[in-house]
Structure formats: C-alpha cells, structure tokens
C-alpha cells in the first residue's frame, strides 16, 4: 500500500501510508508554498508586472508558476549522476524514482535541464529569461492581452540585447532560449496531467 509523491518540492518521494490523504496534502503544501511565494516576489520585481491588472497578475502567475519553478529548480536535477535532489537534501536516482512510478515527465525534465545548462547562462541572463517565461505563460482568461504582450516584447528585447552584449559571437543562444518556451509549455501540460491523475485517499 506504499504511496509515492514523486516531486522534488516534497521532502521525500515516499509517503507514510498511515497518514490521511488530507495530512499528506497539507505537508506537501507546506513544502511547495514557500517556492510559490518566491515566484510571486520575483514577479513583483519584473519591471512593468505590477502595472498589469491584479486579475492578469494572478492569471499569469497561475499559468506560469510551474514553468518558472522548472527553470529555477533545474539545479535539483543532476544530469551527470541522473539523480534528483528532494527538499530534504537527499538525492534519489532516476532508477529509484522510476520504481516509484515516475514516468515521461522525469525524462523530459532531464532533457530540458541538460539543454538549458549547456547554454551556460549567467545569473542576470537566467533571471531575465525567467521573467520572459512568466509573461509568456498561457494567455487564456487574461483581461488585457495587449498589455501582457507589450510587456513580453519589452522583456524579450532586453533579453536579446543582454545576450548580444554578453555573447557577441553566440546570438544563437537567444534563439535557443526562445525555443525553450514551447518546451516549458509541454512540461507544464505533462505536470498538470500528473496533478490531475494524483489521488489521495482519505
């Protein structure tokens, strides 16, 4: 009857079968809530984000938080060792996580991590890219799509000029980064499917 919740935002992938579904979910929530709050704090510092309507700020954050977290937590995925570090600091091998039910999402996360790390972005570049990721999140339900698109364009322009300045001979990095956006969207969709399929029994 052993259950698993294979998400590095959890302290451990193993779930105590004695605990109720409610308390498992409460504990998991306590683990990922600080990470979500950090994404909100990050969003607040994106120039122009607070000028969007409150409704659109919330919509973008709802749609884009996971994508931002994927970028931020690629450091938890050790591509060489094929292992993932969970919140407790303990590392679990891909084989171990597979035996706990991890599937395609895990492979896709490693692919994404490997490609992103290969670009060797600096801190400022990564931060600007992450801002682009957030404002490029799914547009459904937005009140003012034009304002979001204007913000997205200005951030993409800033990213392009930063990459051009830092890597004058490697402008392909910029194109590769923009191609990460659809990858993130598909990771987000896979993650949503996992969430919907996850059931905790009382």
């Amino acid at each position: 009857n052993r259950m698993h919740l294979v998400c590095p935002m959890n302290t451990s992938p193993q779930v105590d079968p004695q605990k109720s579904g409610h308390s498992i979910w409460e504990e998991f929530s306590m683990s990922f809530t600080p990470a979500v709050r950090e994404v909100v704090e990050f969003a607040k510092r994106i120039p122009g984000f607070r000028d969007l309507s409150e409704h659109d700020q919330v919509s973008l954050l709802k749609a884009g938080t996971f994508e931002v977290l994927v970028v931020r937590f690629t450091s938890l995925f050790d591509v060489k060792e094929r292992a993932v570090t969970f919140l407790s600091g303990r590392k679990y091998s891909v084989e171990a996580l597979r035996s706990m039910g991890a599937g395609d999402l895990l492979n896709s996360m490693f692919d994404f991590t490997e490609k992103l790390q290969a670009l060797n972005l600096g801190e400022e570049e990564m931060s600007l890219f992450t801002a682009v990721v957030l404002v490029s999140a799914d547009r459904s339900g937005l009140e003012n799509v034009n304002s979001v698109e204007a913000l997205q364009e200005s951030l993409i322009r800033a990213l392009r000029s930063l990459i051009t300045k830092n890597h004058p001979n490697e402008i392909a990095i910029f194109t590769k980064l923009l191609l990460k956006l659809p990858d993130l969207r598909s990771l987000n969709n896979m993650h949503s499917e996992q969430l919907l399929a996850f059931k905790v029994h009382p």
């Binding site: 709050r37 909100v40 938080t65 969430l195």
Partner: peptide, 27 residues
C-alpha cells in the same frame, strides 16, 4: 478537481503573496 492550479490551492497562495505587498504600497 478539474483545474490543476485549484488542486494545489495555487490561486490562494498567489493572491495572498501579491496582496501582502499591495497593502504596503503607498497610494
């Protein structure tokens, strides 16, 4: 649950974190 974001209570966390700073903003 039909909406993964609702499943995680994401909207509630986001609204609280956003509003936390709004209260501090001078009008």
């Amino acid at each position: 649950f039909s909406d993964p974001a609702s499943n995680l209570g994401l909207e509630d966390i986001i609204r609280k974190a956003l509003m936390g700073n709004m209260e501090e903003r001078p009008e």
